[in-house]
Design a protein around this nucleic acid. Structure first.
Lengths: 220, 220, 220, 220
DNA sequence: AATGAATGAGTTTTCATTCAT
DNA sequence: CATGAATGAAAACTCATTCAT
């Protein structure tokens, strides 16, 4: 809850509003740079091993500047992760393209997830949360509340729909939506840890998984 | 490199063999204490945030003593994890109770895994490896080689057997043994991160998963 | 490496150039204080036995400040000695008051050396180099290159001149300019080690030495 | 003043005298090994940077054993140097082969010195004393008393004799016997520090020096 | 607002010394 | 006597945080 440099304190001695907002823009840019840099560093080294010095250098600002935007390293970390997660949550809640079969919907969702998360910085972020979660309960809580529980709820709704429509046979699946998501979790971690040992074709694995749940795709 | 305090160097006409071995025993005990303590601390705080001081305190030894057993913090960490993983590998390779259906075998295996890993310190170890893997490639390599690739190979063999016997329909499963294991992975991480948010009945989830793969259990 | 805090990096639209340079001045002053303190401590205790803590205390800065100026103890030591030697080299190369007899020139040089080196901190520096040279080959190299070889070359030139002019009889002296310098070396070490056991009149000894080489001074 | 393990305390329960002396021999051998090893290490690294561990390893004894022979590192060092110097002093006092010219005597002496000191471990010992002298006044005192003052006195006597006999013209030399010795000092330090930069023919330099003092050698 | 020099508490690591065996 | 594991005080070095400019 530090942040928000953009707003308050416009007591500057009657500088032109234009000038003031230019300044504010600069500050906002700086903040973004810091956030980016910090994310990169935290992902690369974890919380404890990351040096504010390196963040500052990477962001192109002075070390002290970081403290104008964040109270301290810890709250920077927490705020950072929150900030990174939020836009993602929107996506989850948003679309539901409706229309076709549930399998198509799930597949679309999963594909999107694989493309935008597995093998990307966002995937590393997931790993980071897994790594630091126990030491940052606030983050684990937030992540559970905003991502996990919502994601599972959404998945559960889809499963239920599929059961109703007869696309899915196994009724217990609705109680364990984690089963739907598990392969994607594994794909994310695999990319982050073992891709260089043995590349994984996540999309193909996804198909196999969906075939397991929805039955093999009937050739049209 | 470090280690082996217990053995060699009996070149001295030792006070008495008994005495020498008593000493060695004490040293070995100390080593075990250090390893235990270190594991606990590393699991609780991660590599970078763990203080050798705390390890020493928890192990009941002086700080310097740690350096009699390990070259430095880093190699202590690596050796530690290796040491912790090794006995586990044995278990993986060993049993194969044969006998009944493949499903029974897989179920037995999975149960064992859930009981001995999910929700235990060993589960936290898995999380630790996920967390520190990228910064300790040696560990990621070792873990992949000794655990992941072996586990997947074993699982693949079982799947193939099940396909041959007609227990499993979906033939693509053999290409993605990760699918078999994914729910267990998720269970382990869940216990470590979200158990307090929403307890997970891993065994029941496992059953649902197996029903998905092998078809619902036919009531005898 | 290290050093150069004083200069570069004025990329920031600095609060005010004056302010910036005032800061830089302060930093430069601090650096000088550290160098002074370090030199004193190293001379007093040698490299290994000198504590950075003491240097910091003596310089009136915090321990961390030292690391803003030097990479580590070792490179501080090496840089220090280089820095201390350089201004001296200038002197060696510079004067050659020409004019009178070679003996007068040599005498002037030697006197200068005795006054500015023997019994001063600079003399102790020579002792320090002798002491640490073998463990700091870079320093021994530097010292040989910048001081010893130049000094001997200069001396050899003077000797040759003196031989040409007939001031010196012994022609082999030109091959061993060390002979010219040896008594000064001894004087320096004597002051540093045995002055309290038996004071040495270095100037008188120098006269005796010059008489040996140039023949006794003819009373004008 | 620690040491002397060889003697006292023969209260051992009536073991055969032979056995006792065998033990004593072993202890004496050990002591010698420690002294040797310590000397090597101290010469190579200086007092502060030398580890007792390394000395023990090199001597082939346990670290604790060192403390059976020496009170602590410091007194080991002091005693060591004393022990190493003593036999040398004997040599200085002893010979005086008399007979020939003073020049011959001095030359013999100097040759012996160059051969046995310059470029040998004994030469490094001299450097060690120069290096550590200021931090070990006891050693500087001892060295001055036993070596320097005696050596200079002997040299002075020879010079006086040479003056009486007319071999040396310059009468002031007797007041500065250091002048006689200076080139040898320089040779010792040169070998230790700069031999690899520029080899020095110490014997030839000595001849040039003696020619300077005694006049050029008349070809027989 | 922004800077980056300065700080000093906190960490890892070393090593002389002790002492139970 | 000899050993070498154990100790813990001491040293080098790091880095989050502050604050004068």
């Amino acid at each position: 809850m530090s942040g928000s440099i953009t707003s308050n304190k416009r007591k500057s001695r009657a500088a032109s509003p234009a000038a003031a907002s230019r300044r504010a823009d600069r500050a906002a840019e700086r903040r973004v740079a810091i956030v980016q840099a910090a994310m990169d560093e935290f992902i690369a080294r974890g919380f404890a091993a990351t040096r504010l010095d390196d963040i500052a250098k990477r962001a192109g600002v002075a070390k002290g500047t970081i403290y104008l935007h964040f109270k301290d390293k810890e709250s920077m970390f927490e705020e950072l992760i929150r900030t990174a997660i939020v836009p993602f949550v929107g996506r989850l809640a948003a679309p539901l393209p409706a229309g076709g079969s549930v399998r198509d919907m799930v597949e679309a969702l999963a594909r999107m997830f694989l493309q935008e998360v597995a093998g990307t910085r966002r995937g590393d972020l997931v790993r980071l949360i897994i790594a630091e979660g126990p030491r940052f309960p606030a983050i684990a809580d937030f992540y559970y509340r905003e991502v996990v529980s919502r994601g599972l709820a959404a998945m559960r709704a889809l499963i239920q729909l599929a059961i109703t429509r007869g696309e899915i046979r196994e009724p217990k699946l609705a109680q364990y939506p984690q089963l739907m998501i598990a392969p994607m979790m594994v794909a994310v971690l695999w990319k982050s840890l073992f891709e260089r040992h043995a590349p994984l074709d996540a999309e193909a694995m996804l198909q196999a998984h969906l075939d397991l749940i929805f039955g093999p795709r009937r050739p049209t």
